[in-house]
């Protein structure tokens, strides 16, 4: 398992939306089996970065991208079919999106689209993912209910269960606690720590304390540029390489 090369390598990544820059010459690695937190004020380009990793950026017509992103050593641009890339990367959006189908169908959607038809495999997937996302106990009797009828916090965990259904090597979460109550947030954080044993995790968060609690390393983005990335011991200390990091982490940002 242990390998020297990083899981994700971002190199000179720049993104414009209709000419307006959102990411500017970003270079950043995500190591294998680490939890990397990405923090920064709103509109600093955090979501844009995640969208470049699984090529969702292509679905935004106004976006133009330069630079490279490598996942597991392979340039993502070289995938003929972006679906194949996306199946290796679990992605969770800020607002939970239950698909308009049953809970069971929600969790098995990705495997079914990838061609899995075996009912016992699908049953196992549902159980494994819902347990991993700490949702199993709440919905095990409601697997045939519509996913859209669950509460917001439950839908967010359903989204995580769905993202885990293909056993991805990488899990990316974008401000997952925005629409979730504090209790659920803590539950999800516990889940992420467990999952981290064999998964690389990128957590975009607006909560500095969440980054401190959860991550091994933290990166600070500011107006599309990387300010600093480093071990949490450094980022959350007085010895930051960049003064702005210290100010931001202390909430002194103006």
């Amino acid at each position: 398992m242990v390998s020297a090369s990083p899981m994700i390598e971002v190199e000179n990544l720049s993104v414009n939306y209709a000419g307006k820059p959102a990411l500017d010459q970003l270079t950043l690695d995500v190591r294998r089996n680490e939890i990397l937190a990405v923090i920064g004020p709103a509109n600093s380009g955090k979501t844009t970065l995640l969208n470049c990793i699984n090529r969702m950026i292509e679905t935004i017509p106004s976006a133009s991208v330069s630079g490279t992103v490598k996942v597991d050593g392979h340039n993502v641009a070289e995938y003929r079919d972006p679906s194949l890339l996306r199946r290796r990367i679990g992605m969770v959006f800020p607002l939970p999106v239950g698909l308009p189908m049953t809970v069971y169908e929600n969790v098995t959607f990705a495997p079914r689209m990838a061609g899995e038809k075996d009912r016992t495999v699908l049953d196992e997937t549902v159980q494994r993912c819902l347990k991993q996302s700490a949702l199993w106990d709440e919905v095990k009797d409601r697997l045939d209910d519509l996913g859209t009828r669950l509460s917001g916090g439950q839908q967010q965990r359903l989204t995580i269960a769905r993202a885990l259904s293909l056993n991805p090597e990488i899990l990316c979460l974008d401000e997952f606690s925005i629409a979730v109550d504090p209790v659920t947030t803590m539950k999800i954080e516990e889940v992420l720590k467990e999952l981290n044993e064999n998964m690389t995790i990128v957590v975009v968060t607006n909560l500095v304390l969440q980054a401190k609690r959860l991550a091994h390393r933290t990166a600070l983005l500011l107006r599309g540029k990387l300010v600093e990335v480093g071990d949490n011991e450094v980022i959350f200390s007085r010895q930051t390489a960049d003064a702005r990091t210290f100010q931001y982490v202390q909430g002194l940002f103006g």
Partner: peptide, 12 residues
């Protein structure tokens, strides 16, 4: 959002 969710899950 439904379409985007499907695409991220690797659906074509």
């Amino acid at each position: 959002a439904f379409r985007e969710a499907c695409w991220t899950l690797g659906a074509t």
